[in-house]
Amino acid sequence: MAKDIVAGALCCVGTFFFLLGTTGLLRMPDVFTRLHPSTKCDTLGACSIIIGMAVHSGWSWELPKLVIIACFLLLSSATCGHAIGRSALRRDIPYWRKKTGEVEGGDGS
């Protein structure tokens, strides 16, 4: 029973981060800024759901496969983000800058 609660909580956390990644993907202004939410939130969301499923399955043959998938995702999503960013940089896609007028006043932090 406690196992199910932990697995369910991890699934909820993962779904929340997936929703966050989608929001970021739709809201951000250009390719480079879209890379941020998509790489980070998707990695954590997918990994936490997969680890939740690993908790759910317990000691079985599914466990090592799930761990391998999670580790591979951790590597691959960072590398995919790097590849897409590099191709955008090499194609000279202009990146979004804050308006110079706003930098003076609006940047409080």
Partner: peptide, 8 residues
């Protein structure tokens, strides 16, 4: 992720 969530 906390940081990105705050910004988004």
């Amino acid at each position: 992720n906390y940081d990105v969530a705050k910004i988004i």
